[in-house]
C-alpha cells in the first residue's frame, strides 16, 4: 500500500498534464473551425515547408 504515496500523485500529475494541454488548445483557438480543420489536413499546401 505504500505504493499509493507515489501512484496517487503520479496519476493526478498525468491527468493535470492532459488538462493543461487542453487549456493550451483552448487558448490557441483550436475549436473555432472544427469543420475547416478536418478538411485542411487533406490539402497538400505547405506539406514541404511550414506556412510563413
Amino acid at each position: 500500500m505504500e505504493m499509493l504515496v507515489y501512484l496517487i500523485p503520479i496519476s493526478l500529475f498525468l491527468g493535470g498534464l492532459g488538462l493543461l494541454a487542453f487549456l493550451w488548445t483552448l487558448k490557441n483557438r483550436q475549436y473555432e473551425d472544427p469543420e475547416g480543420d478536418s478538411q485542411r489536413f487533406l490539402s497538400g499546401d505547405w506539406d514541404d515547408k511550414p506556412k510563413p
Partner: peptide, 28 residues
C-alpha cells in the same frame, strides 16, 4: 465546402497585392 475550396480561396486572396493574410473559416 471542401479542402480544395479552402486552399483555392486562400491562395487566390493571398495572391492579391497588398493582402497580408487570408484565413478561411469553413464552419462559419
Amino acid at each position: 465546402h471542401c479542402a480544395a475550396c479552402i486552399s483555392a480561396v486562400e491562395r487566390g486572396l493571398s495572391g492579391v497585392p497588398g493582402v497580408k493574410s487570408a484565413r478561411v473559416n469553413l464552419t462559419l
